[in-house]
Deep mutational scan, measured.
Amino acid sequence: GKMTGIVKWFNADKGFGFITPDDGSKDVFVHFSAIQNDGYKSLDEGQKVSFTIESGAKGPAAGNVTSL
């Protein structure tokens, strides 16, 4: 299901970062391709987001990332 969290950091040049889930679980990798907006796909440190957990090739990653 949907989770919420805070963006820990995001490197716009490399197109990835990490989200710290509100439930205290392990930080989740986020790739820019998972960001659900029409414009420039980037996130800001400290931004609140909702997301799902998808299993990627390198382990769990955030999917369906939407800013709240």
Rank of each mutant, 00 (worst) to 15 (best):
I6K: 14
T66C: 05
V49R: 00
S67P: 11
F10T: 02
N37Q: 13
K41A: 07
E45L: 13
F51H: 01
I35K: 02
K2A: 11
W9E: 03
S50M: 15
I6S: 09
V49I: 09
S50Y: 09
F51Q: 00
P21K: 03
G5K: 00
V28S: 02
S67I: 15
P60I: 11
D27G: 04
T52W: 11
G17Q: 00
G56S: 10
N64F: 09
W9N: 03
I19Q: 00
D38C: 05
G39A: 07
A57K: 14
D13R: 15
H31P: 04
A57F: 13
W9G: 02
V7H: 00
S25V: 08
K8R: 10
A61C: 05
D23K: 07
A62Y: 01
A61F: 13
N64R: 06
L68N: 13
S67Y: 15
T52I: 14
D44M: 14
G46F: 06
H31D: 03
S33R: 07
P60E: 14
F29S: 02
D13K: 15
V28D: 00
K2S: 09
S33A: 07
V49P: 00
V30I: 07
K8C: 04
S33L: 14
K41N: 06
K14P: 02
A62T: 02
F18W: 10
F29R: 03
F29E: 02
A12V: 14
I53A: 05
A62W: 01
A62F: 01
G56K: 05
A34C: 04
E54N: 07
T4N: 08
F29V: 03
K26A: 15
T20F: 08
G24A: 07
P21M: 06
D23I: 06
N11Y: 11
E54V: 15
K58D: 11
F10H: 01
T52H: 08
F32Y: 11
V30N: 00
G1R: 06
S33M: 09
T4S: 10
G39T: 07
K2I: 15
G39P: 15
G56I: 04
S25Q: 09
N64Q: 10
K48G: 06
G17S: 01
N64M: 13
L43Q: 02
T52M: 06
E45M: 14
G56R: 04
S25Y: 08
K14T: 04
A12R: 12
P60S: 10
E54L: 15
N64E: 07
F16V: 07
K8Y: 04
G56D: 10
D38A: 15
L43Y: 03
G63N: 14
I19M: 02
D44P: 10
I19N: 00
F16Y: 11
G17L: 01
I35W: 09
T20G: 06
G1N: 15
A62G: 04
G15N: 03
S42D: 06
S50V: 09
G5M: 00
K14F: 09
S25P: 05
F10P: 00
N64K: 11
G46L: 05
D22W: 08
G63F: 12
I6D: 03
V7T: 04
T52N: 09
D22C: 05
G63Y: 10
I19W: 00
D23P: 03
A12P: 07
F51N: 00
G46P: 01
G59S: 09
T52C: 05
T20Y: 09
N37C: 05
V7P: 00
T20Q: 12
D23H: 12
F32P: 02
G63L: 14
G24K: 07
H31T: 04
K26C: 04
A61D: 04
G39I: 10
